[in-house]
């Protein structure tokens, strides 16, 4: 029963986003451009060897559609929570009968899921046109959807944790830039972690950033049940850790809220 209100928030957030999807897609012309640029790059790079680190050009371009889909469908939770903290709106939320952290999580995930669906469709069409269909796409899809959703939840939680730091620093965007670049590089945003030198790949695979990009995309383009299990278990652990961190930070931060009537 307690969870149902957050499911309602999630549902409302998905519905709200459908009103803004045309504008969202117009902005995401960028997604098509990036896929074209990487298609051009991989066409040259793969012309030499055909297969790199066990991946074909088809797998590598499709891989990018999934990592970019998770990245581009990010919610506005970072901006919303930061604004709530900076302008003091958060004081009103403290009196409401819900957990602000879980409420923001549900709202952020709802927003991201609505965007994700559309970006995945665009990625499907564009990648098919450039390099043809992905072998095993439909058999991996039920598993892939689950871990892509896990990647979305992880991203929203990261943004929530960073946004709550505004209680201390006010401006949090530089933390976001650093996180984003860690996901870009160590998370395997542009190419699979198998492309990395071995020593770096061993470290990168177990870091939380890989569970927002590499593991979900790898599940789709090079499915194995073992890999899928690693992705699910890893995401569950990091979701638990980040949720606890967000709740902990919020509990500490609440002490810094001063209400002056009004």
């Amino acid at each position: 029963m307690a969870m149902s209100k957050y499911l309602d928030v999630f549902r409302f957030s998905v519905r709200d986003q459908t009103a803004y999807l045309p504008a969202f897609m117009a902005r995401n012309l960028f997604f098509v451009v990036i896929l074209f640029v990487f298609f051009s790059l991989w066409r040259v790079v793969f012309a030499e060897s055909g297969v790199i680190a066990g991946f074909t050009i088809v797998q590598t371009l499709w891989y990018l559609t999934f990592t970019e889909a998770i990245e581009l469908s990010r919610s506005s939770v970072l901006q919303t929570v930061q604004a709530d903290v900076k302008d003091g709106t958060i004081a009103y939320d403290l009196t409401r009968p819900y957990s602000y952290v879980v409420f923001s999580l549900a709202r952020g995930v709802g927003e991201a899921v609505a965007k994700l669906a559309l970006v995945l469709v665009v990625g499907f069409v564009v990648a098919t046109v450039f390099v043809g269909p992905l072998p095993g796409y439909f058999s991996a899809l039920p598993f892939g959807v689950l871990v892509i959703f896990g990647g979305i939840v992880l991203n929203v939680l990261w943004h929530l944790v960073i946004a709550l730091l505004a209680f201390w620093t006010e401006e949090v965007m530089p933390f976001h830039w650093i996180l984003q670049k860690l996901v870009f590089i160590l998370g395997g945003m542009f190419f699979p972690i198998e492309f990395f030198p071995d020593w770096l790949a061993r470290i990168a695979r177990v870091l939380p950033f890989a569970f927002s990009a590499y593991w979900p995309a790898r599940t789709m383009v090079a499915f194995s049940f073992d890999g899928f299990l690693v992705a699910v278990v890893g995401q569950a652990i990091y979701i638990g850790v980040l949720l606890a961190l967000a709740l902990g930070i919020f509990a500490l931060a609440k002490r810094r809220v001063h209400a002056h009537g009004g």
Partner: peptide
């Protein structure tokens, strides 16, 4: 710092 991340992309590739 933000820009520096892309050096690693090209180094690895």
């Amino acid at each position: 710092l933000n820009n520096s991340a892309f050096i690693f992309f090209w180094l690895i590739l």
